[in-house]
């Protein structure tokens, strides 16, 4: 086993075990796709290679930031929220009158939200975007004094904040969790975060693979032409299997790990569907181009936007009493 102890990377033992598995898995995928290059159609080969290369970069960035520090990890999620908002606000229609509200939605609300997360102000983290965000955005729209399109603008802007700042922020808050009584617990906020990303992305990746290999029956042809029942079942079972095997990252019992993985798969599937519907509504195929082979940031994190809050509140409800400081500012 690789031992990073004493190096700059400060990852828990359980996270390192998962990291070794992920690196082996990615290496295997790289080799297999490379060997199949003669058999695959050219554009599929390029798409697969692009996707795998992007995965290498994602795993590298996540490992480095999570291993380096809590603050840096929260900063990374702030940046992911920022970039997702960029993609979302570029894609939707906005009015010139929305300028100030958009500025606040871009810079002020996300920065404050991640500041609450960093300072572990739990109550503020929970209510800031749904309450203060909801109340303040229409105020900044009022300043323009144009009621035409007011509801649309208020709704569109707040929707983006809820999905990409509030939803994604729950992933960042996970890194604050730690066992309050047992400093030697094998799991922590870091491993719980990694577990969520791992199960959600395994579900996505295997839905893609099973869909490509066996996909026949489309679930929502009008929303997402790529989603098939074969893909969903194959991806879901894979994710639950890996979620069960890697439950050492969590305090979950055997049965619980299966249920939580199922929850992540289900919420992730809904999140992916919602973002597909948004793309169809806007007449776009992808939200952006920052992740070669995948599209934009939103195309990669769509499932996590939905899975993260539910996963977080499951943990807060059933395991919060020993993992989470919920009182006033600590």
């Amino acid at each position: 086993m690789v031992d990073f102890k004493g190096t700059f990377l400060n990852l828990p033992e359980a996270a390192l075990r998962l990291l070794v598995f992920v690196l082996l898995f990615l290496s295997g995928a790289t080799v297999v796709v490379f060997l199949l290059r003669g058999l695959l159609p050219g554009n599929l080969y390029r798409e697969l290679m692009d996707r795998i290369k992007t995965w290498w970069v994602i795993v590298g960035i996540l490992t480095l930031t999570i291993g380096l520090s809590r603050g840096l990890t929260i900063l990374l999620f702030w940046f992911i929220s920022f970039w997702a908002l960029k993609e979302y606000f570029t894609a939707i229609r906005t009015r010139p009158e929305d300028h100030l509200a958009l500025f606040v939605a871009f810079f002020v609300i996300p920065t404050l939200q991640y500041l609450w997360i960093w300072s572990q102000w739990y109550i503020m983290f929970l209510i800031f975007v749904p309450v203060y965000g909801f109340l303040s955005i229409p105020f900044f729209l009022l300043i323009s004094r144009n009621p035409r399109g007011f509801i649309m603008s208020a709704a569109r802007i707040h929707w983006g904040l809820m999905a990409f700042v509030y939803g994604i922020g729950h992933m960042a808050y996970l890194v604050n969790l730690h066992h309050l009584h047992d400093p030697n617990a094998p799991y922590s906020g870091i491993t719980l975060l990694i577990y969520l990303i791992f199960v959600a992305e395994i579900s996505d990746v295997f839905q893609y693979i099973f869909g490509k290999l066996f996909g026949r029956h489309r679930i929502w042809p009008s929303i997402s032409p790529g989603k098939t029942w074969e893909g969903l079942v194959g991806g879901g079972i894979s994710a639950i299997l890996f979620g069960y095997l890697f439950r050492f990252l969590t305090p979950f019992s055997q049965l619980e790990s299966i249920l939580v993985s199922l929850l992540i798969v289900a919420m992730g599937f809904i999140g992916g569907g919602v973002m597909s519907a948004v793309k169809r509504d806007l007449g776009k195929k992808d939200f952006g181009y920052i992740l070669p082979g995948h599209g934009g940031i939103i195309d990669r994190i769509d499932s996590l936007c939905w899975a993260a809050p539910i996963y977080f509140h499951y943990i807060a409800y059933f395991h919060g009493h020993y993992l989470l400081i919920t009182g006033a500012r600590s």
């Binding site: 960029k86 570029t90 300028h99 100030l100 958009l102 500025f103 871009f106």
Partner: peptide, 8 residues
């Protein structure tokens, strides 16, 4: 306007 809204 002098505040930028950083779209693509």
């Amino acid at each position: 306007q002098f505040l930028p809204v950083p779209l693509f």
